[in-house]
């Protein structure tokens, strides 16, 4: 489904991502791992259009999306979350979700001003889908809450919900459990699995927590110094000597 071909990104001479190629097949959960500064987030930003690749190509279902603006890439079915939990903290929970659904509708100035039938239809559709996602997240009771009243875990769940409300084909998660304790991490892991199984969304995830990734991912791509050093199933990655060296041993067995 997603195909990354020899993508390279240079920042004023420094190579952040070098000749990166990998593929994500429909229905998989793929993890991108690597030590700090390995270029994982940069790779995400290159796929979602936040950064433009120096060269290389990104395609989704055969359509070239290289260098497109982020808002256009979303409409091709690629949604993302950010490392630092990003929500509209001045708005309510339900507003956050409806905003994310908006591009699926044809809501504009004139139908909003005149309350045309199309306006009513789209508003209702956005609302219904948002409520559906809230139920899926288990946050229905908080629909009218303002964001700062949510717990950290609730905010992380909602950020994922905001990304899937518009029914993307591929969801990119940037450290979705960062800063959470074990119990909370387990619940988020469960949520990610449910997103794949129940919503039919392919998932690509950046994580540090090895144990979680080994249990969750179908395939793993390992980056180090901006280059792919290994790719394979969790079992293959666990015994790969290059990976063990990059992590200075130990951590993988944790």
């Amino acid at each position: 489904m997603l195909k990354v071909e020899s993508v390279t990104k240079k920042f004023s001479g420094l190579v952040a991502v070098k000749d990166l190629s990998f593929e994500i097949a429909k229905g998989q959960i793929v993890a991108i791992i690597g030590p700090n500064g390995a270029g994982k987030s940069t790779a995400f930003n290159l796929i979602t259009g936040t950064l433009k690749p120096t060269w290389g190509k990104v395609t989704i279902n055969g359509h070239d999306i290289t260098g497109m603006q982020p808002y256009r890439i979303v409409t091709r079915g690629v949604a993302r979350t950010f490392q630092t939990t990003s929500l509209f903290d001045q708005l309510r929970v339900i507003d956050n979700l409806m905003i994310a659904y908006k591009w699926r509708t044809k809501l504009g100035f004139w139908n909003t001003l005149l309350h045309l039938p199309s306006w009513k239809r789209y508003q209702e559709r956005a609302f219904a889908r948002s409520i559906e996602v809230l139920e899926f997240l288990g946050l229905t009771a908080k629909a009218n809450n303002f964001i700062p009243t949510l717990s950290q875990e609730e905010q992380k769940r909602l950020a994922i919900g905001v990304a899937i409300v518009s029914k993307p084909q591929l969801l990119l998660l940037d450290e979705p459990t960062g800063g959470l304790i074990q119990d909370e991490t387990d619940r988020i892991t469960e949520l990610i699995r449910k997103i794949r199984d129940e919503q039919g969304i392919t998932v690509c995830i950046i994580e540090h927590k090895m144990q979680m990734i080994m249990g969750l991912a179908d395939r793993i791509v390992v980056l180090n110094y901006g280059e792919k050093i290994a790719e394979g199933s969790p079992e293959e990655i666990k015994v790969n000597p290059d990976v063990i060296e990059a992590y200075l041993g130990g951590e993988l067995n944790a």
Binding site: T50, Y71, R80, F82, S86, Q90, I99, K102, T112
Partner: peptide
């Protein structure tokens, strides 16, 4: 309206609005 919410989304976090499919 949802249309108006996109204005507030831009005020609140333009980068996120962009990442959620809003042509800022």
């Amino acid at each position: 309206s949802i249309f108006g919410l996109t204005f507030m989304a831009i005020r609140n976090n333009e980068e996120l609005a962009d990442a959620l499919g809003i042509n800022t």
